[in-house]
Design a protein around this nucleic acid. Structure first.
Lengths: 279, 279
DNA sequence: CTACATTGGGTACGTCGTACTCAGTACGGC
DNA sequence: GCCGTACTGAGTACGACGTACCCAATGTAG
């Protein structure tokens, strides 16, 4: 059992070496006809085009006009390839100091959120990859670094900063997932949403008769007519609003910056919004 | 190509028949030794225990002490089984009128969010199943029905109600995904978070030296020490706060209930929270 | 009792990830 | 220049997977 753990440790080291481009220098033998980047790029291209289900080592090799097993000279296993793909598409694209200059931290946070959303729209297969461990890729770490920079000087404790970042990321990821699942369903079945609901018609009515969903039935026809864009906009506005009022409350109750030892994030908002909204 | 669409239509009908328990009456032949419920329950048990990757038709059959192909007498394909599993775990558990009576719409919304979160914690494989099409299962529709009931009488338009529900669900889903991915990484590799970061140590330091992440380095040690519970609590509070202030603003600008023809959800919050929080 | 609809499940095909193996290549040391 | 050797590319093979197809066993309708 210890060996199993040691093996996993070795796997981590292997991933890290690949992620940080630590490929040792070569000396003898034929020059490699492939490169890690070429493989990862081809894999990303394939996943973008046909989805994660179609991403097999054989397909990637075919994409490169190469034998299947040749890939294993560069990548120890498919899992590691996925990690590399993950870091590959998380490329920075965030600097551009010029247009950032005049932005408030809130609009900068909003832009980060939208960029993350766009990342998932461009590469839906990201949602099916476990991102929790390879957070360690250089590009992924850059993202966190930028977000932390955005929140600098706001009198938030370190845990609070992380919580703010994770909250925004969770919302954006969840929304992107909704959208990606809809698209995927459309592409896999070849059925548009309209056709789908049309096909449902009879069964739904049957169901209505048996179970009765009063509020659902009372919905107007345009209840589901919002675009994905407006769905993202609406929720993003709510989330950022909630974050902003939290930060404002913190700012007010801690005029001299965040307390040294954090953990107590009880500078909640005034809760004035909630009052009077009861039913 | 038309046949392909027709085939998909047929697939939908098949799923619906199964979902709504429309199994026809039998007449001749031996009595079935299995039941749809038994299969779905066994599949859910297996997925809960060993994850979606371990859920194969052979494994489910073995779980039931039955030949593999026998399952296909009850389920047309694995996809349909997943849909059935999805609706199976989305069981109601929401009524309980007694304790609901005194709750405001906001706390009721919060409870819905927490229940959804718990659902994903109990059945992490849900996050890997495409839920966008089989929204039509009876249990899934019940969930939407309850949420709509919660938002009744709040002078929101129908699209706004949907947007509020989807916003909350997106956040909760995203958070649950973070948690599920962490757990999955732990279980698959057999490495705890502490061991993982310890193994990272050298590589991370190496990276720091080469790329330099000033804000990341300045983080205190306890920056990542929050529990999953407190992560959920923090973000949920922010999201609900943002929703509450939106509803309050709507309430104020529409004293006589929602306008008949919706779509224009421009009754944004006063934006007072954002003011003064600029950098 | 016979006919036949229905059920259980065995076999087989094409896919997958990848362990193992070996032929061919081209550089370091002489 | 030449050989030894480290290295690369790729074929073969194995055990998993979903499921199409087939047949034997079953038990009710007529």
């Amino acid at each position: 059992m210890t060996s199993e753990i040691e093996q996993s440790h070795a796997a981590i080291s292997r991933s890290l070496e690949l992620l940080w481009r630590g490929r040792g220098q070569r000396s003898r033998g034929p020059k490699p006809g492939l490169s890690l980047d070429a493989i990862v790029s081809a894999a990303v291209r394939l996943a973008d085009r046909e989805g994660l289900a179609a991403l097999s080592m054989r397909r990637v090799a075919a994409e490169l006009g190469v034998g299947t097993m040749s890939l294993y000279r560069y990548v120890p296993a498919k899992t590691e390839l996925l990690y590399l793909m993950l870091d590959h598409v998380s490329a920075p694209n965030e600097p551009d100091e010029a247009e950032i200059a005049g932005e408030s931290w809130l609009t900068r946070l909003e832009r980060t959120g939208r960029e993350t959303y766009q990342l998932y729209v461009d590469h839906p297969w990201l949602l099916q990859v476990n991102q929790s461990r390879p957070v360690l890729g250089p590009n992924s770490m850059l993202g966190l670094e930028y977000s932390l920079a955005t929140l600098d000087g706001l009198s938030l404790t370190d845990p609070e900063k992380i919580q703010v970042i994770v909250t925004l990321d969770s919302y954006v990821t969840g929304t992107a997932r909704h959208y990606a699942l809809l698209r995927q369903a459309h592409e896999e079945t070849g059925i548009s949403d309209e056709e789908f609901w049309a096909a449902q018609g009879p069964a739904i009515e049957e169901a209505m008769r048996e179970y009765s969903f009063p509020h659902l039935m009372r919905l107007s026809g345009e209840a589901f007519s919002m675009s994905q864009q407006s769905m993202l906009d609406f929720g993003l506005e709510r989330v950022l609003d909630g974050i902003a009022s939290f930060v404002a409350a913190c700012q007010e109750s801690r005029p001299d910056g965040p307390p040294e030892t954090g953990q107590d994030h009880d500078c909640g908002p005034e809760d004035g919004a909630t009052a009077g909204a009861g039913r």
